[in-house]
């Protein structure tokens, strides 16, 4: 195959390729929105059916960890956006560190999440494994925790993929940073910000309800 030219044969130019890649990333994000959308519908339906149970379930989550995690993720997103903004071969060192920093914050998020999971395990709040919750709201709480575990697990999976992407890009930037990696970085950044946005909504749905009552 006659490869080795600067751009693949289906593209006319480098900007053409870059715009195409960006568009592809946005289509992918639209797909992801609907993936989480199914979960959100389930959440809304059951929160409507079991308002008390969902409030009670929410009160059993760790708002400190949740808030800290949100701040961690927002900061990490900020670092990535910063890296995209200043990306050039001249700044490759800073960009590398920014990406490493963002990835480390991602790992902090995962670690805190694991801590939270283990706490919930100890409190017997994991449906299907050791769920025990006495009282009238048990059904609602159980449905809440089913949603909680599935949604946060899928989100954490996205985080892990994102961390992998960031580390890969950090390595690339360290070794040989050229203009053409800007597109790759930009796409990875879009993905990372999207994961951030998902978390912003999950935070509002999981940690905040029921705090004002008891």
């Amino acid at each position: 195959m006659p490869e080795s030219s600067a751009v693949a044969p289906q593209y006319a130019s480098i900007p053409h390729r870059d715009h195409t890649a960006e568009l592809g990333m946005w289509v992918f994000i639209a797909t992801e929105v609907l993936l989480f959308g199914g979960l959100i519908l389930a959440y809304l339906v059951y929160r409507h059916a079991f308002p008390q149970g969902f409030a009670a379930g929410s009160r059993h989550t760790e708002i400190v960890i949740g808030t800290a995690n949100t701040a961690v993720l927002l900061t990490s997103s900020f670092l990535v956006a910063w890296a995209v903004e200043i990306f050039s071969p001249a700044t490759s060192k800073i960009v590398t560190w920014l990406l490493v920093g963002a990835a480390c914050l991602g790992l902090v998020f995962i670690a805190l999440k694991a801590l939270e999971y283990s706490g919930e395990y100890d409190e017997h709040l994991v449906p299907g494994i050791n769920f025990q919750f006495a009282g009238p709201k048990a059904n609602g709480v159980q449905l809440f925790f089913i949603f909680y575990f599935i949604a946060t697990a899928i989100h954490a999976l996205h985080m892990l993929i994102g961390i992998g992407l960031l580390i890969t890009l950090a390595i690339i930037c360290r070794r040989a940073s050229t203009k053409r990696h800007h597109t790759a970085l930009h796409s990875a950044a879009l993905y990372w910000h999207f994961v951030d946005v998902v978390w912003i909504f999950l935070f509002a749905l999981i940690y905040l309800p029921g705090r004002s009552t008891s």
């Binding site: 079991f50 008390q52 009282g135 009238p136 709201k137 059904n139």
Partner: peptide, 17 residues
């Protein structure tokens, strides 16, 4: 089945499911 989801006013939710 779910005695405490709709409790009658002025009664305690004491009924088991």
């Amino acid at each position: 089945l779910m005695p405490r989801s709709q409790v009658v006013a002025s009664y305690q939710p004491v009924m088991p499911s």
